[in-house]
Design a protein around this nucleic acid. Sequence first.
DNA 1: TTATTAAAATACCAAAAGGTCTTTTAATAT
DNA 2: ATATTAAAAGACCTTTTGGTATTTTAATAA
Lengths: 143, 143
Amino acid sequence: MFNKETEYALRGLVYVQFQQMLGHKPGIVEVAREIEAPLFYTGKILQRLVKMGFLMSTKGKGGGFYFDATKPELPLKTVVQAIEGDKTYAGCGFGLKECGDENPCPLHEQFAPIRAAISKLIGQNTVQSLARDFRKGGTILGL
Amino acid sequence: MFNKETEYALRGLVYVQFQQMLGHKPGIVEVAREIEAPLFYTGKILQRLVKMGFLMSTKGKGGGFYFDATKPELPLKTVVQAIEGDKTYAGCGFGLKECGDENPCPLHEQFAPIRAAISKLIGQNTVQSLARDFRKGGTILGL
DNA sequence: TTATTAAAATACCAAAAGGTCTTTTAATAT
DNA sequence: ATATTAAAAGACCTTTTGGTATTTTAATAA
């Protein structure tokens, strides 16, 4: 569905938010281990997320990643869009730029509701809502 | 949604089938032009499709690509699966191999119906059915 | 039988994705 | 101050994807 970077980013963000709800500020090593993602790549991705303003961090002892709790909840769609664009939930199944309601490819009509459903799903779910779901138990983020 | 190779392959296959219904056997140059795909890459992809047994071809004068009309219709899913696997319509939104009904990620339940819809759509539609739709007009494959 | 035509095969090439590793910078505790 | 800790920065590296170009093989028409 999504590319690796997006997958690791989503898992990492939800994990950080979940830990934040427990009063903990995890670092790269912990996040990578817990979401089962490559250590250095996870570091790079978390740092990109900080630079994009989705996440905060502090260096040094006691450092790690955390969210600005005063900001509104972060929809998955915002993260997905920032990392890999909208090709997954927009754009033609045949890859035609000209394809649209006026000028449909043979799959356009059938794909439209699916794209809408994906768009809605990642637009409604937020990093925070998934962390709450995860906290309740019954779901996994790794291992 | 799909990668470039899959997109070009689907457009190319539908175009060849459509031309076949008109009694014509198109070559690489024509297919690439009509589906608006890179010439040499289109050639490579069509040749792969032949090697995979989805398509037939003849060399030399009057040569080109065509389908064995005695074979059953070809579902898009078969082509997609052969080219890029099932990651688009199967597999976890978070990228977890362990994710499933028993061991769900926080998105699993919500994504399940979407994956099922994609799977159904590309399982039901065939190269032939889309070529018939295209023949009726009102849809595009390129240009 | 030889041109001509067109696919097959093959050899590259460039960009993007995915991933690793080392060095630098900043925060904090001693 | 300084040792320690941990993120930031950045240099690489590998694989996959996307794409180009040339040579070879096969079919056919003259």
